[in-house]
Amino acid sequence: MEKKKNKKVFLKVVIIGDSGVGKTSLIHRYTSTRFLQDFKPTIGAEFSNKEVVINGKTVVAQIWDTAGQERYQSLGISFYRGADCCGIVFDRSDHSSFENLDTWKNAFLKHGAPKEEGTFPFLVIGNKSDLDDGSLVKERDAQQWCADNGNLEYIETSAKDNTSVEEAFTKLIEKGMEREKVNLVELPDRMSQKNKTVNLQRDVAKDVNRKPQKKKCC
């Protein structure tokens, strides 16, 4: 068991973007395979976790869903730190959310302060593709923006119809993995840290468990 655990790779995935573009819905679709009907504004941040096997490796993606409103950026910063990859979501039916991509990317790079500013793995996600009434943000425009901003990858999704949601996250995680490979030094370090903490707590926990048992006997 222990050996298996060691093979796991932990990835921190952060999803950012304007309020109401569907970040929570996308993550929900991915982690619980259903569409959230009564979605609500995210306050602060939400955590979810998904274990996937990519290229024979078990990856645990820790996905952070952040609040979209500008005011929450001061809180969001704490989630940017140590991210392995970042998905920027915009609503294809809301052009202003597309225009804000710049702001989001810059804010992430500024506050997350990743080592490689130029090559940090971003994925641009155009959500709500199901609302096709001809006025959606065009793929051409989105691709153009991505090309202008360091050849980022772009994908169109719909959390409602479950179009390309799985692909988007898989891509994102793969990108994060590639980054991990480059920074090989980081990996064993983090793993050992993780194991250390586990061992310590198990001991503490055992002590906690023993006490009530003794009492019962007496």
């Binding site: 306050i43 602060g44 941040a45 903490t197």
Partner: peptide, 11 residues
């Protein structure tokens, strides 16, 4: 130890 600060769960 888990590096979980209140901003992650209590906001």
């Amino acid at each position: 130890n888990l590096n979980l600060c209140p901003s992650m769960y209590a906001s």
